[in-house]
């Protein structure tokens, strides 16, 4: 098992290396002078030269890449071209918010999706099943930004409620923190719930058809036991796979949702830096998100063997 984890971690190195190459060189394709873009057209030649020197833009591209990567490997992501602040501390601070939002959304989605999916699977072709299928398909089809906008509109019109602005950390004021995060988490959670619900339903259907379930039933086990101890546990593998895949959607979704709810998370940082063409921040943040994403996928893979002892990794 440990050998497997280590091998998987080693396999991440070329992927992350690839990500860094893609992100760094794609940003360098942008036509025009980076210094000019940042300082504007009325900047003096001296100021331009100074900026180029400060950020190593006067160096050959390969050298720029290696000096950036060299920094990244020791935890130095460079400085923002706009604010001059260190990139990594900014990323980590904002990631806390995005991470909390993602966890909260995931929990909401499981609370909705797994029970409903199980019920739909057990009562196949019933009215309940049909309703759940329509709800889940709607969940997949409603874009999170549309849901967020309509939700804010409805709350404003019916309860004159508008979501709180700004952010307070969980440990500073847990209640205020939850008040701020609950709406965005509901929006992201319901979108994710659709996909998880569908997968839960179809895997429960699949498992209930199998011989071992018939044997357990024949032995007189209570239906509740059959569902929870046997069917659901076996259905968890595909459910977990879809959850792993949804994490990427979730991380991407935070970019838009943080913008709508003015949450100062990592997604908002990416968007602001893209709009400001702050390359050091864009490349640092995107690399960081990709890193988190592949790590989560690895964790999901490792969870498989915990849930299904038949799966062993060598």
């Amino acid at each position: 098992m440990y050998a497997y984890i280590i091998r998987r971690l080693l396999m991440l190195i070329p992927v992350l290396f690839g990500v860094s190459v893609v992100i760094f060189f794609t940003l360098r394709i942008i036509p025009g002078d980076v210094a000019q873009t940042i300082l504007g057209t009325d900047a003096t030649e001296d100021a331009l030269a100074q900026l180029r020197k400060d950020f190593g833009l006067d160096q050959p591209v390969m050298k720029q890449y290696f000096s950036w990567m060299g920094g990244v490997l020791v935890g130095d992501f460079g400085e923002s071209m706009r604010t001059g602040r260190d990139v990594l501390p900014d990323i980590l601070n904002r990631f806390k918010i995005t991470f909390e939002l993602a966890i909260l959304s995931a929990i909401i989605s499981w609370i909705i999706a797994i029970p409903l999916g199980v019920i739909a699977g057990i009562k196949r072709n019933s009215k309940t099943d049909f309703t759940v299928r329509i709800i889940s398909l709607l969940g997949v089809s409603i874009p999170n930004f549309a849901l967020a906008t309509v939700l804010i509109l409805v709350l404003a019109l019916t309860f004159s409620y508008s979501p709180p602005v700004g952010y307070v950390g969980f440990f500073e004021d847990p209640i205020k923190n939850l008040q701020i995060l609950i709406l965005p988490a509901i929006v992201l959670g319901t979108a994710m719930a659709g996909a998880v619900m569908r997968m839960t339903r179809s895997s429960i259907l699949e498992i209930l058809r199998q011989d071992f379930v018939r044997t357990i039933r024949a032995k007189g086990a209570k239906e509740r036991l059959v569902i929870f101890n046997h069917a659901l546990r076996n259905a968890m593998i595909p459910i977990l796979t879809i959850i792993g895949m949804q994490i990427g959607v979730l991380l991407g979704g935070t970019v838009i949702i943080e913008q709508i709810f003015s949450l100062p998370g990592l997604g908002q940082l990416v968007l602001t830096s893209i709009n400001q063409r702050d390359f050091t921040v864009i490349q640092g943040a995107v690399l960081f998100i990709a890193f988190v994403f592949v790590m989560i996928n690895l964790l999901v893979d490792l969870l498989y063997s915990y849930l299904d002892p038949r799966i062993t990794y060598k």
């Binding site: 070329p14 992350l16 990500v19 893609v22 940003l27 970019v255 968007l271 893209i274 995107v286 990709a290």
Partner: peptide, 22 residues
């Protein structure tokens, strides 16, 4: 496939955003 793996490491919307930014 290794190149595709690299692209899989980006969440969809983020990759699209970065490409449009460029």
């Amino acid at each position: 496939m290794r190149i595709m793996d690299v692209f899989f490491a980006f969440p969809d919307i983020l990759l699209a955003l970065t490409i449009v930014a460029v």
